[in-house]
């Protein structure tokens, strides 16, 4: 049997008013198992904790793959379903280019920094 990887915390969550600010603890959002855990933890903010205004802060993130983008799309869809909103901020120039190439910069609301992000709700 394949040993289960440790489900260590991958997100730091802080509430600022009614907005939930999420920081990624990983510099690289890679690996199926990690991305799966991140996706589940993000969805649980909406489904279990009832948060509906989420600001994802990418300040720590230096690298992500298309599999991670998929989880962001699923989270965005879930928030749209419940009348909530997702905003992304502090995206490094290299990673922003990934959003541009995939045209996901048209799907997501992207703010410059956390302050701008908080104003975007």
């Amino acid at each position: 049997m394949t040993p289960q990887p440790p489900r260590r915390r991958r997100l730091e969550v802080e509430d600022i008013g009614d907005i939930t600010v999420v920081n990624f603890l990983d510099k690289k959002i890679l690996d199926d198992q990690n991305i799966q855990v991140i996706g589940e933890q993000l969805l649980s903010l909406v489904e279990e904790l009832g948060r509906n205004k989420i600001l994802l802060n990418f300040a720590n993130v230096e690298f992500l793959s298309s599999a991670a983008l998929g989880k962001l799309i699923v989270l965005n869809r879930k928030l749209n379903e419940v009348g909530g909103k997702l905003v992304l901020c502090n995206i490094d120039a290299n990673i922003y280019e990934v959003f541009e190439i995939t045209k996901l910069n048209k799907v997501f609301k992207i703010a410059k920094d956390e302050q701008d992000g908080l104003q975007a709700f």
């Binding site: 298309s66 599999a67 983008l69 989880k71 799309i73 190439i101 995939t102 045209k103 048209k106 799907v107």
Partner: peptide, 21 residues
């Protein structure tokens, strides 16, 4: 094409686009 409007919100299918870019 993952950038076509009808595919923009599909959660997968962007790897090849990124490789080519």
């Amino acid at each position: 094409d993952p950038t076509a409007p009808e595919n923009l919100e599909r959660p997968c299918g962007r790897g090849l686009l990124l490789m080519r870019h």
